[in-house]
Amino acid sequence: MFEFYDVKYKDVLDLPKLEIKQEEITTFIGASGSGKTTILRMLNKLISPTQGRIIFNGTDLRQINSVAHRRTVSMLSQSPAIFDGSIRDNLNVGLRFQERELARDKDLNHILEQVKLNKPLEASANTLSGGEKQRLALGRILLLNSKVYLLDEPSSALDDETEEMIIQMLTEHVKREKKTIVMVTHSKAIAEKYSDTIIEISKGRCLTWRCNDERNN
């Protein structure tokens, strides 16, 4: 789905070759500052490589309209910004930005259930806790129902139990709907348990690359 050829980003990243497969869960791990977020931002075309090229489904990413690409590939950023307004406004905000029809309350409540956020739609989003905001932001991109999700530490602010439930829900959803996930996590345990492929990044370079074959068997 994504192929990297001699990709560099300033002096932050240097990735001669990298491949991310469709309908798989690919997880990036690595030390803080190693360049994981930068990779996801390139996959979302929020930034472009300073050198080399990224191929998305056979087309050079440079030839794809950025806004259109960001609507195909939805990203949950590492510290997602929450907009002024209610939980309902914040869930709908992605649809509004993409000029799509807003969701009905029934669907919004279903999403809140999925991300384990037990709050009324009218509640103000700004007073939510850090972990609740993270789940709200996750719900907001799940509502976009994209084929590809880029998740930058989707469970960093959650306790172990909630983290497990959320990742479990995500992986089941993705496998069922034949979607693709590229995620970043600090938790080796989560990476080992749920990924098809784990890529370890160190100082902007791809250190190891392994497929969880035994899990697939």
């Binding site: 929020l46 806004v67 960001r70 609507r71 939805s74 907009f83 905000v93 930005f97 993409q98 000029e99």
Partner: peptide, 17 residues
């Protein structure tokens, strides 16, 4: 800036963002 960037991430055009 963070809100503008978040809007871009969510698929907004620069104008909407």
């Amino acid at each position: 800036k963070a809100l503008v960037e978040e809007a871009l991430i969510l698929g907004a055009t620069p104008q909407v963002a």
